[in-house]
Amino acid sequence: MSPGDEHDYRGKDQGSHPDDPYSTLGGTRQTRTRLPDGDAGHPHARRPARNSRSLVTITGVVVLLIAAIAFANRGSGSDDAAAPGAKSPGTAGSATAATGTKPVQGKNGTIASGFAHDEQGAQSAAANYAVALGSAEMFVAESRRSIIEATHDPAVAPGLQDSLDTAYSPTFYKNVGLNDDGSTPTGLTFVSRTVPVGTKAVKMETDAATVEVWCTGLVGLSGQGSTKPVTETWFTISQELKWVGGDWKISSSSQTEGPTPVNGDNRASTADEMAAAVDAYGGFTYAR
């Protein structure tokens, strides 16, 4: 979200786009995949056209996650090849149903912890970490540091903390509509939420896993006079997880746009209704 040279999750230089304040953060840019206009169920359906403001705003929620994981991915190996002996669960998703195994044993601050040392635990960890890294608390220095410590491998967390402290600058805050210190302007409510729709284990080893989390999200400023209204976005996060210190932790991640459904006919809520909903409804602890 701040201008400068950026890198994708694998450290490849993507170029600079200083004119797009919502698409970069601390010199990083998300990797986005453009999906076809139609799908198997709706071969002739096309996404509604987005105006320029919507296109800029809609990238906001994904960028929150990029900021938290871009540094950790520098120098990581390719995600394409599975390690010898790795279990590949396949492409078919399984139902989210009770297994009899308690997936979460405790909490690290406000984030679930103590996940089971198996595929179910890895999926639950990935979903919960996606929520934390896409939250409004990432915009506050103290809570941001707590989130990174709770979700990332200690081997990459310190460097990531330094990178994010630089990225969340007064210029960056201004670009997203906040005050120079990251606080929300009087009379407005800052919204940033990530909501997992489903998870899939792509690779599973004893102490390592690759889990994809399909998400929808909300981002923007709600309230009378907001010039950056709350919008939704759809994206998929791929997390490389390691079993560290008795729990699953993120070692690297990547992210793509979609899959995105066709917009429905729901009436957009007023700014006051949206602000009231954000205050009234809390989030969830996710389990697989």
Rank of each mutant, 00 (worst) to 15 (best):
F172N: 01
G93Y: 08
R46F: 12
E149G: 10
A167K: 09
P158M: 06
E257G: 14
V140W: 06
Y173I: 02
T59N: 13
A122C: 08
T194R: 02
K242R: 15
V156D: 00
S124Q: 01
A208Y: 06
S252Y: 00
K242L: 14
C215D: 03
Q161Y: 10
T99P: 03
P103G: 05
G26D: 10
L218P: 02
P3N: 07
N73Q: 11
Y168D: 00
P84W: 03
K174G: 14
S222M: 08
Q105T: 13
I111E: 00
H17T: 10
N51T: 10
R53W: 14
G187R: 07
L25V: 12
G85E: 08
C215G: 05
K102Q: 08
G182K: 01
D265I: 11
P196A: 03
P158E: 04
Y22S: 13
K203W: 05
N73W: 01
P261D: 09
A72W: 00
F172D: 00
G223E: 03
N73R: 11
A81M: 11
T166F: 08
Q239T: 07
Y168C: 01
D8G: 05
A45W: 14
T256V: 12
W214F: 07
A122N: 02
A83N: 13
Y286P: 01
A157N: 06
A126D: 03
N73T: 14
V191W: 05
A112Q: 00
T186C: 01
A72K: 00
G77M: 11
S252A: 14
W248K: 02
G177R: 01
G41H: 15
D165P: 05
M138R: 08
S238G: 13
E257K: 09
T206L: 11
T59H: 10
Q161G: 05
S16A: 15
I58R: 05
L64R: 06
A45T: 14
T233R: 03
G217D: 03
N128I: 00
G283S: 12
Q161H: 13
G85H: 05
A201M: 06
N263K: 06
I250M: 06
L218T: 04
E119Y: 04
P154Q: 05
V213A: 01
A132F: 01
N108G: 04
G182H: 02
T28R: 09
A45V: 15
F139A: 07
G159R: 02
V202A: 05
E257H: 12
A208M: 09
A125S: 12
G114F: 01
S169F: 04
K12G: 09
H7A: 11
D279R: 15
R47M: 07
H42G: 08
S169G: 09
S163Y: 10
L160G: 08
K174W: 02
S146M: 09
I69M: 13
K87G: 10
G217T: 06
D153T: 01
P158V: 07
D79P: 14
G106L: 12
D153N: 04
H42R: 15
A125F: 03
